[in-house]
Amino acid sequence: MQNPFEVIPAEIYDVKQESPLIRTLSLKPEKPIEFQTGQFMELTIPGVGEAPFTPSTSHFVKDKMDITIMKTGFMTEYVHQAKVGDKVGLRGPFGTNYPLDKFEGKDLLILGGGCGLAPLRSLFLTLLDEVDRYRSITFLAGSKSPKDCIYKDAAAGWKKHPTVKFHRAVDVVPEGEKWDEDVGVVTVLLKKSEIDPANNPAVVCGPPVMMKFGTMDLLKMGYKEENIYLSMEKKMYCGHGQCRHCVMGEYYACKHGPVFPYAQIKDEEAIWE
């Protein structure tokens, strides 16, 4: 049996600063990595450590992988010092994926904020690769301020698809910054949705507080508990349901998640923390 701690070496071929705190590493792994959108990888910075991140590219792309990472702690500090040509390591993929079959022929709503947009970008790009499978895709994205918005260049292209809607909101517009889209927490964008909530799926990913209120709002609109898919990113350390850092009651976020239908975990404790 293969060593579960085996690492696939990868080279950084591009680095893109998305916002002051967020950057995207473009990686070329030594061998192609098959993953399903929603699954996560363990990224190793040699000699420093590893941490879980979700790819932000379509799962149809196998020989390259983008990972969008916010500078927020010890390990990510080093991620933000990485340069083109540096070697890193990847383990995975791990966990559950977004159930694309259940989205087929439906009006899909995607609600995301901040760094939660990284896994959603992977989902969104995967959906765009087969855009005709879905009746419509509505992507609602929130950020703190205009300069914190990520994937600025790509967004214009996304809006061109006739069945795709892409709306953005920022919490605040500081003086001197320009913004001609919505202002407010991301859930204000929900009023733009014309989707029938009772029979369609929704995906939520973002900071804990956004996920909590996003989910509550979706429920109020009439979305069903089993149709709301949450990316419960916890401290997924080993990826195999072994080390227990990511447990949510009886579930391991790394093995039974990170993508959970809300109905499955609603009774577990502290899911929003």
């Binding site: 070496p9 190793t44 040699p46 000699g47 420093v48 590893e50 390591g89 350390y237 080993c238 080390c243």
Partner: peptide, 19 residues
Amino acid sequence: CYCLILNDETKAQQFVKVR
């Protein structure tokens, strides 16, 4: 109890993981 922490102790080309 077997909760583990996985440290990366890579120094050269070969990846090294210590639990």
